[in-house]
Amino acid sequence: MTTYLYLYSHGEVSLAASQPVLLYIVVAVILIFPFDIFFLSSRFFFLRTLWRIAFPLQPITFPDFFVADILTSMAKVFSDLERSVCRMVNRQVATIAWLEADSVCGSHSIAIPIVLVLPYLWRLLQCLRQYKDTKEKTCLFNALKYSTAFPVIFLSALKYHVIPEQWTSLYRPLWLLSSVVNSLYSFYWDITRDWDLSGFSRIFKFNKPSVVSNMFYGQQWIYFWAIGSNFILRCSWTYKLSAHLRHNYLTVFTMTLLEMFRRFQWVFFRVENEWNKMTRSGIQLTEISSEDEKLLSSNIHDV
């Protein structure tokens, strides 16, 4: 950015316009760099996970849906990425066209809702794949949760393709309704499924919490804070999915920043919940093994 501003302020417009292009190329090269530097194993694991997310043709693992869930918080980032690439391709970088509501890369572009919906589509396909493998109906309800984001995105995009009266009388109320459904459903799923706080049982009685859990947030007020803040931020995050509300860039930046906080909070509790499941599973296996050992000893003694 410093190079861009310096070159642009000194009249080197073409060189300034090359800076974003070079930045995108450098990031891509670093990701696929085949030599054992820049954390080769982590880079390739990340790329392999992205491939599995985009093409969920194999059984879904924890990293697959974990990263895919995080990508849903980056829908706005994907939208901005599409717009940036569009402007680079059409040579609208470092020119007055960047500030104009042009007809190529403007908010009305059909590519914007398509890019916004991609992370939710990937997560939906993962849920369907999980249902195919496990036959658990919970996977279908989870798929339904991600499908509720589709109306929010596409109804918002309709504002640029219908007359104002039609938007105000029909599509705007439908957009508001779909936003409420998406926010409430997502909030319910976070609390009852992803965090396993159904009935607030974990607030009033910890079920064998781990040492790390107690160390970081083993107090009851943390759970109240997590539930309340998650509800507020889930509702405000709909702002990001709606292209027709994204003209106030400061507000959009604030919403995106808050979503980063909400997602980090979600990750913390989601990993703890998964760890507790694994721990409980290990305890149950140990107890079963102990019972089998006692039964075997008794049988030997009888013989």
Rank of each mutant, 00 (worst) to 15 (best):
N90T: 15
C86N: 10
S42D: 04
D36A: 05
F33K: 00
S73M: 03
E82Y: 15
A101D: 14
D80W: 14
Q92L: 11
T95W: 10
R91C: 12
I25R: 11
F78M: 10
V85C: 10
V89Q: 10
A68V: 01
T72Y: 02
V67D: 00
P56W: 04
T49L: 01
A97G: 07
I30D: 01
P34C: 02
F46L: 09
Q58W: 09
L50C: 08
T95P: 11
F46K: 02
F44M: 08
A54G: 15
V29P: 08
I60R: 05
V77F: 12
E100W: 14
V67R: 00
S41Q: 10
V27P: 06
F44T: 05
F38Y: 06
I60D: 04
S73C: 00
A68H: 00
L81S: 15
V85S: 10
N90C: 10
A28C: 13
I25L: 15
I37A: 11
Q92C: 08
V85T: 12
D36M: 01
Q58Y: 09
E100H: 15
L71H: 02
R83G: 07
M74F: 08
V29M: 12
A28W: 09
R87A: 12
V93Q: 14
S84N: 15
R87M: 14
F39N: 07
F35A: 09
F35T: 11
T95S: 15
W98C: 09
V67K: 02
I60S: 01
R87G: 04
P56K: 02
L57R: 11
F78D: 01
A101T: 13
T95K: 13
A68T: 02
S42N: 00
R43K: 07
T72G: 08
D69L: 04
I30P: 04
F39V: 03
W51V: 09
I30H: 04
K76R: 12
V27G: 05
F39D: 07
S79E: 13
D69G: 09
R48Q: 11
W51K: 12
I70A: 06
R52C: 03
T72P: 04
P63I: 04
A75E: 03
V89C: 09
T95Y: 08
